[in-house]
Design a protein around this nucleic acid. Structure first.
Lengths: 141, 141
DNA sequence: ACATACCTGACTAAAATGGTCAAGTATAGA
DNA sequence: TCTATACTTGACCATTTTAGTCAGGTATGT
């Protein structure tokens, strides 16, 4: 299972973007400064977000990024999927003869991970960027 | 967040142990053969399980391991905790001035990870070794 | 033309993962 | 008491992943 800083950065950056893109596109430089994330790393992340139609880019001076959809249409699932944070639990090796063979005698933990995956995914399906924005505003007093 | 093979192996091994320890202690060698997990690696894992009072060891010929508690008293939380599979999501760096500083202006994702952690932990709190045993027996026709 | 800002790919240090290897110690049974 | 079995401990290691850096681009508004 993977759920690391890259996914966290993606979410942080998108929350930041959502808060500032109402008037002008937001440059990665600004996000980098505000969120304390390396600019080079942000570029990698946004490249993926763009490929997955979560953001749009505007080149040139005063350019930057804008959300492609409304914050309530962007689920966390989409974000994690975009940056390759597969919310996948450890898989049983297909070749292994002992333990799991995918047939009648599945290994004892096979169903467990499937269940867990469903459980986690349902959490991320429900949460949208908008939910995080609200949450964030509440906190800033 | 960490949730890797070590945790999976620990659960697999304990399910195996629970199914065979009713009469005699079960040797790691047997578990290794049945589950296809390296004996040396199992020893590392069981050393931790023992420290956390999940299993007891019996040395000498015909020795092996036995569960310290009943299967329904061993929650998955206990197992993962024992083998250092911290179900902890990525943390905000404490030193970072931007983003999260732990005070009023928490970073936008801080609560998210807390929530997720609670969500996942509740899943593991509910599941006990006994649940997996049932599940496993059902499958073996 | 030039500054800004996106874009791309190669590279890398450090950590985590999933083990192996070696050298024990304890105990049951012959 | 000898010996085979099985637990115990700690060092070591190859590979992969992570979290970036670096070095170049290209596009565009002013």
């Amino acid at each position: 299972m993977k759920l690391t800083s890259k996914g966290r950065y993606a979410v942080m950056a998108l929350v930041d973007l959502a808060r500032f893109d109402s008037i002008n596109p937001v440059s990665l430089r600004d996000i980098s400064l505000r969120q304390g994330i390396s600019l080079d790393y942000l570029e990698q992340i946004f490249s993926k977000l763009k490929k997955n139609q979560i953001v749009q880019s505007i080149r040139g001076t005063q350019g930057g990024y804008v959300l492609s959809k409304k914050p309530n249409e962007i689920k966390l699932t989409n974000i994690f999927h975009a940056v390759d944070e597969k919310v996948k639990t450890v898989q049983c090796k297909k070749e292994s003869k002992k333990g799991c063979n995918g047939k009648a005698t599945k290994c004892s933990t096979h169903n467990l991970w499937d269940e867990l995956e469903t459980h986690i995914n349902s959490f991320f399906e429900k949460k949208s960027l908008e939910d995080l924005l609200k949450n964030n505003n509440d906190q800033r007093i």
